[in-house]
Design a protein around this nucleic acid. Sequence first.
DNA 1: GTAAACGAGTTCTCGATTAA
DNA 2: TTAATCGAGAACTCGTTTAC
Length: 304
Amino acid sequence: MSNVARAVEAAGKNCQLFILFKQNTIEIRPRFRGGAVSHLKKENTMHLEDRDKQIFSYLAKFHCLTAEHVALLFGMNIKNCQRRLRKLTARNYIQFIQSPGISAGKSPYLFYLGESGCELMNIEFKKPRLTVKLSHQQKNTDILVKIISDFRDSDILCEVIPEHILREEQPSIIPDAAFMLQRKSNEATKKQALFLVENCEGTEIISSKSFNQDIEKKFISYVSYFNDGDTLLYDRLFGCSFKRFRVLYIASSLQRQNSISKIISSLDSDGFIWITTIELLEQKGIKAEIWQVPGTGEKERRLL
DNA sequence: GTAAACGAGTTCTCGATTAA
DNA sequence: TTAATCGAGAACTCGTTTAC
């Protein structure tokens, strides 16, 4: 009798145990409630679905995502999403690390492409490192996932490019993200809108005479970039032909929004820099009337 | 030091749906 | 018909923070 068969027989005799098949070894663990063995039988089989491949594609794009991100991206129930991610983890399509704790309770896992997943996506396996850069990247990912989910199941196609991909192109100004919107019903006319996102962490210097990395100087660069009308980089990245773009500034607080709005209104006569707060974005969504245009004095505008 | 609170993940059940 | 999957909910574990 094989070891597996012996273990199955033992489990059958003792309902307080269940068996875990793990890399040719057998572990017998305490049983929680009925059904554990049949549950594992199910876990042992794996058919990749289109959605799984889309998850890999998002993981390749964002480097790492939480279960909540994935659930939001696909409109999945969070528990089922966690179950699916666990299953993909068991097959090494994806892996996870514990994100650094910033609040009470267990911190969420950061899922990233495992070796099998990278092989499938034809990209190099790379484990994310817990750095300040990753923390900023995750805040940008929060916003991008929110944007994608806001346009999910709508008539509008939304494609995003995160900062680390833009950085590889070495543009003169590096936004925190870029995204493109296009009406699905209007695909024939190929009319697209380009948005560059600036995510304010609340720590950047707004304006300084001695410091040349402040927000005001970045806006001056954006105004110059806008007047040049050069969107070639984004044309290539999105495979589109943009005429102009908008900068969407997401302020960390209302107070900061007011301070930054004053600078925008003095620099942006075209009204291409729009601003809102992260609180409004999270509460009402990107499509709501949450945008102010300091350059023209307009308030409560919609994105489209 | 410790219990309580909190947040996130895990295990399991049940019923519905879908594809082979 | 059957197996696989999904959605939702309940009950649970685990790790961390906080108040006493």
